[in-house]
Deep mutational scan, measured.
Amino acid sequence: RLGFCQHHDDEVLHLYCDTCSVPICRECTMGRHGGHSFIYLQE
């Protein structure tokens, strides 16, 4: 089961930031992890 983002309370962690080695949400890709390399996580 996927968890929720600690920075965006209502967002599920659907992605993994390869650059930072952390799970991220959709909102994170447009903010603090913008321009980073990421992949989609599987449930």
Rank of each mutant, 00 (worst) to 15 (best):
R26C: 07
Q6W: 04
C28E: 03
H33V: 01
F38L: 09
T19I: 07
F38G: 05
H33A: 01
G34Q: 10
V22Y: 06
M30A: 14
R26N: 05
I39S: 13
H14R: 10
R32D: 08
I39M: 09
G31N: 13
L2G: 13
F4D: 12
R26K: 13
G3I: 06
H36C: 11
T29P: 05
C25M: 02
L15M: 11
S37E: 05
D10A: 09
V12G: 04
Y40K: 15
E27P: 05
I24C: 08
Q42I: 07
G35P: 06
F38A: 14
I39L: 10
C5Q: 01
F4T: 08
L13H: 03
P23A: 12
S37K: 14
T29K: 13
V12C: 11
Q6N: 09
H36Q: 01
L41S: 10
H14T: 09
I39V: 14
P23F: 03
C20L: 00
C20G: 01
G31H: 09
E11T: 11
M30S: 13
P23K: 15
V22Q: 15
R1W: 03
T29E: 15
H7K: 12
L41P: 15
G35R: 11
S37D: 12
C28T: 02
G34E: 09
S21L: 10
R32W: 06
Y16E: 08
Q42K: 15
H8K: 07
G34I: 10
Q6C: 08
I24P: 02
E27Q: 15
S37W: 03
L41G: 12
D9M: 08
Y16C: 02
D10P: 05
G31A: 10
Q6E: 13
H36W: 00
R26W: 05
V22N: 03
L15P: 04
H8F: 05
L15N: 10
C5I: 00
G34L: 05
T19H: 08
E11H: 12
R26H: 10
C5L: 00
C28K: 01
Y40R: 14
D9K: 15
Y40L: 09
P23V: 06
R1K: 15
H7L: 07
L2M: 14
E43Q: 11
F4R: 06
Y16D: 03
H14S: 04
I24Q: 02
I39A: 11
G3F: 09
C25D: 02
Y40G: 15
V12R: 14
C28F: 00
L13A: 04
T29H: 13
Q6S: 10
H36E: 02
M30T: 14
E43K: 06
G34C: 07
H14A: 08
D10W: 07
P23S: 08
E11N: 05
M30E: 15
C28Q: 02
E11R: 05
C25A: 02
L2W: 06
D10R: 13
M30C: 11
R1D: 12
L2P: 03
G31M: 10
G3A: 03
C25S: 01
L2E: 15
R32I: 10
R1L: 03
S21V: 04
F38K: 07
H7Q: 12
D10I: 03
T29R: 14
I39D: 15
H33F: 00
Q6T: 10
Q6P: 05
G34S: 13
G35A: 14
E27C: 05
G34Y: 03
H33M: 02
Q42Y: 04
I24W: 01
F38S: 09
H8P: 05
H14E: 13
S21Y: 08
H14F: 09
H7T: 08
V12M: 07
G3R: 04
R1T: 15
I39Q: 15
C28H: 02
D10N: 13
G35H: 05
G31K: 13
V22T: 15
H8A: 06
H33N: 00
D9A: 14
H33P: 00
T29L: 08
R26F: 13
T19A: 06
L41I: 05
V12T: 12
I39K: 15
H36D: 02
H8D: 03
C17R: 00
H7I: 07
T29I: 10
C25K: 02
T29N: 11
G31R: 09
C17K: 00
S21P: 01
S21I: 02
E43W: 02
V22L: 14
F38M: 11
L15D: 06
S21K: 06
G31P: 06
R26V: 11
E43P: 05
H36S: 01
G35K: 04
